[in-house]
Write a protein that binds this DNA or RNA. Structure first.
Lengths: 132, 132
DNA sequence: GTATATACGACAATTTTAATCGTATATAAA
DNA sequence: TTTATATACGATTAAAATTGTCGTATATAC
């Protein structure tokens, strides 16, 4: 419960690795994967998604790889999480309104408050703070 | 990702229900289950655990049920979560030290900070605030 | 050309969560 | 004292989400 996924974990590790790459030179998926013990194909897929999301930039071909593209201090952890995993909420009913028990539910408004607290917390931290 | 479990959700619903019960009279598992559309046996098991945890008190036999026992304003949401689901952390490495990638991991200390933020947040909210 | 990289969808395995089932025990009430 | 209804609790199954693998296509440096 209340765990981040390996997908997000791997993405953070890769981002920090790139952040520390001298002169923002590219790192390949296989380099990163072997250094941190991450399944290579899995990491590749995650890096591809981050590329689509505009966080990093891909360079194809041999000597290719990935490097950071976005300004990490302008991206909150909340935005990062939501790019990778979709809407961020303790319960689905925070976004979905099709819960059948909606009428009977007695904890909706308390949950909404905690949700908001959590979202605020992750909104206040930037990706740069995490990766540098 | 970052979701609470149904177990915790059901527990909160039941607690709030008991909180609103006039004169702290007992509520049976089946009453609560049918009112909120929760599988009865599952709720029963959760209520039994809350009884063991000292949150509520059980009364056996017909006309029996459960009522609140603990002082809810003295119990934080963090304690409640941990009673039901164990240690609260974004990643297992917050508590387990047997991660094989520990040496190579480059996001350990950033993650620890976020973890602490999250734990602080849930420590500041009491169960009473949620259920009343 | 060839080797090495990204791109991407389909599929499989694993793990976690959710739910069910069976049986035992306690007790209020007829 | 019998019966119905409640809690107690472990075993098992089902469902869902996560994690990982595979195959194939495309780009490009050398």
């Amino acid at each position: 419960m209340l765990k981040i996924t390996r997908k997000v974990e791997y993405a953070l590790i890769a981002l920090r690795h790139m952040q520390q790459s001298p002169n923002n030179s590219v790192s390949s998926a296989s380099q990163i994967a072997s250094k941190y013990g991450i399944p290579q194909h899995l990491l590749a897929k995650i890096l591809q998604q981050m590329t689509r999301d505009g966080l990093i930039q891909a360079v194809k071909g041999p000597t290719g790889g990935y490097k950071i593209k976005a300004d990490l201090k302008k991206i909150s952890l909340k935005d990062f999480f939501e790019k990778l995993e979709g809407p961020l909420g303790l319960m689905d009913c925070y976004f979905n309104t099709d819960c059948l028990q909606m009428k009977a539910c007695n904890i909706l408004s308390p949950i909404q408050k905690i949700n908001q607290n959590m979202r605020d917390m992750f909104s206040k931290t930037t990706l740069l703070e995490i990766t540098q």
